[in-house]
Design a protein around this nucleic acid. Structure first.
Length: 556
DNA sequence: CTGAATGAAAT
DNA sequence: ATTTCATTCAG
């Protein structure tokens, strides 16, 4: 059955796929006995754009498009979509495998956004050899496409009217970052320490794999490290001294996140090691040869003469598996973990492993890498990973406008989860720039002088889900956060996933301040998609069964 | 209609 | 150099 599937364009995805064929061992949940079989539904109902267009009610695009333009309009019944490129084909398969796995394991479905991210992460880790089948698949699709549509000509309509290209208007996130930059420049321009730590350009400025808008945003990033002050791009922590006297906005009320470990962040570091990982993976079994046989050649897919090894067909597990992470840290994986599905972000053990590790990056690469916890590395991304200081640290200065809370004490909140369970409740901070658990011990300490305390805090946060574009609003908070004045240590659960949620009036308050702060800079807090938990794949954090399979231990 | 992703092909 | 658009589908 695996041979010569006649799949219908563009649904290549008519097979059951394991999420990760990579690990040929210790994959209890992987059902290798399940043959690749065509999914009848997808084969019967290929969802091409044309198909969708035909399915959709024709009056969909009532506005007359004038007479100009190629006949290949989106709404046309005979609309001919572009052939997919290799990555999009891969993504389809990846998504299919993901949903299949989720369905089998009763996991909630992963949002497509997240799937895209994961697919991209995995895609980048594939070697050229591993990518080859998909490239070939894309070629094939293109060939067929040209065959069946000889007159087809790709004719993208240049968006003349639109926002981005012409008006150069910044996205909200960019506004926020610009705001950070603006503030920092005004704050640090004549600061001694600033020049001393002047970034020039930080090594971390490279590898923005995604089409990042490069605008006026070149934030100089500062953050505190127990060993000293370091700087980095795309961080928003004000300088220690400057923070005190910055005006007109001060940092007196800034909340500081100082996690000691972070699992994810496919920033420069992770990406570097991602290369390493794939080569290691390649070593473990050669795709061309027979050093390690593929799980089952019967699962290989033949398509028009192209043979796609089973091993290549199935996407590798989500990239930042625990082994992946640990390999970053040059830590070994004990049996417990190697046989356990885990997402590092939520692994308390990973947190423990991370703790106290002096070196997180080899630094052998192109640029000298400051020894800094992984969590503090951050790529410039649409989604702000994890527990980075968010621009909230900036705009929260508007707490000043709330006299009742900005007493002379000027309390500083330090995120200090009381226990490990708190350390694996990443969802709050993933959606809210800062949600701190206010404890007696942490209250009143400056993060700058409480390094020990700061380093002892632990807040593991999923990388991909935090989006600083989303301004949490009061309405986005659970009711208890909104209304209940004193709910310390109170828990709530969402339908999506249970989690420990500890929030107090200060947190609620901070969110107001955040919104206020943004508003002060004409950055709207409304009109965007702000549902805070929409993108969060809770199943990854509160897994009993894995949404994905961990990569096998690297043979290093 | 948006977002997530990468890459092909167009301006 | 920059932008569109291939896919997917919930919000």
């Amino acid at each position: 059955m695996a041979s010569s599937l006649s799949f219908v364009y563009p649904e290549v995805c008519g097979w059951d796929l394991p999420t990760d064929i990579d690990s040929t061992d210790q994959k209890p949940a992987l059902d290798f006995s399940a043959p690749l079989r065509p999914s009848s539904t997808s084969l019967e109902t290929p969802r091409t754009s044309a198909h969708k267009a035909s399915l959709h009610k024709e009056p969909k695009n009532s506005p007359a498009k004038k007479s100009k333009g190629p006949r290949n309009k989106k709404g046309d019944v005979n609309y001919v979509p572009r052939p997919r490129n290799c990555f999009f084909i891969y993504r389809c398969l990846f998504a299919r495998a993901y949903s299949e796995n989720a369905r089998k394991t009763n996991q909630p479905p992963t949002p497509e956004k997240v799937v895209s991210k994961r697919a991209a992460l995995n895609w980048k880790k594939l070697t050229p050899v591993e990518k080859e089948p998909y490239i070939e698949l894309a070629r094939e699709e293109a060939r067929k496409h040209a065959e069946t549509n000889p007159n087809y000509k790709y004719s993208p309509r240049r968006d003349t009217n639109n926002k981005r290209s012409v008006s150069k208007s910044l996205s909200r996130r960019e506004k926020v970052e610009s705001l950070v930059q603006l503030h920092e420049s005004s704050t640090f321009r004549h600061d001694d320490t600033y020049s001393e730590y002047s970034p020039v350009d930080s090594p971390a400025s490279h590898t923005s794999s995604s089409p990042e808008p490069t605008g006026p945003i070149t934030p100089t990033d500062y953050f505190f490290h127990p060993r000293g002050l370091s700087h980095r791009r795309s961080m928003s922590l004000p300088h220690l001294e400057a923070a005190r006297h910055s005006s007109p906005y001060e940092y007196a009320h800034t909340y500081f996140l100082q996690p000691e470990s972070c699992a994810s962040s496919p920033g420069p570091g992770p990406q570097r090691t991602a290369k390493r990982s794939s080569s290691a993976r390649q070593r473990s079994y050669s795709t061309s040869g027979a050093s390690i046989p593929p799980p089952d050649t019967a699962f290989d897919l033949e398509y028009d003469g192209v043979t796609i090894p089973f091993a290549t067909l199935a996407p590798h597990a989500s990239s930042m598996s625990l082994p992946d992470l640990l390999s970053l840290h040059d830590l070994t994986i004990d049996d417990n973990w190697s046989s356990t599905y885990s997402t590092p972000q939520m692994s308390p053990a990973a947190s423990l492993h991370d703790f106290g590790q002096p070196e997180y990056f080899s630094g052998q690469d192109d640029q000298p890498i400051p020894s800094v916890p992984l969590i503090q590395r951050r790529r410039r991304s649409n989604t702000a990973p994890s527990a980075m200081l968010s621009p909230l640290s900036l705009v929260s200065s508007t707490l000043e406008s709330y006299p009742e809370a900005s007493g002379s004490a000027a309390p500083t909140l330090i995120v200090s989860p009381p226990d490990r369970s708190a350390a694996i409740t990443p969802t709050r901070s993933s959606t809210m720039p800062v949600m701190a658990s206010l404890t007696n011990e942490s209250f009143g300490f400056s993060p700058y002088s409480a390094s020990a305390q700061a380093s002892s805090s632990s807040l593991l946060v999923p990388e991909p889900e935090m989006d600083i574009d989303r301004t949490p609003r009061r309405a986005d908070f659970p009711g208890n956060v909104q209304d209940v004045p004193d709910i310390y240590a109170q828990q709530f659960t969402t339908p999506a996933a249970p989690m420990n949620f500890m929030a107090g009036p200060s947190e609620t308050f901070a969110m107001d301040a955040y919104t206020e702060g943004l508003g002060a800079f004409d950055i709207p807090a409304a009109g965007y998609d702000m549902a805070p938990f929409d993108d969060v794949d809770f199943s990854e954090f509160f897994h009993t069964s894995p949404p994905e399979l961990a990569l096998p231990p690297y043979s290093t």
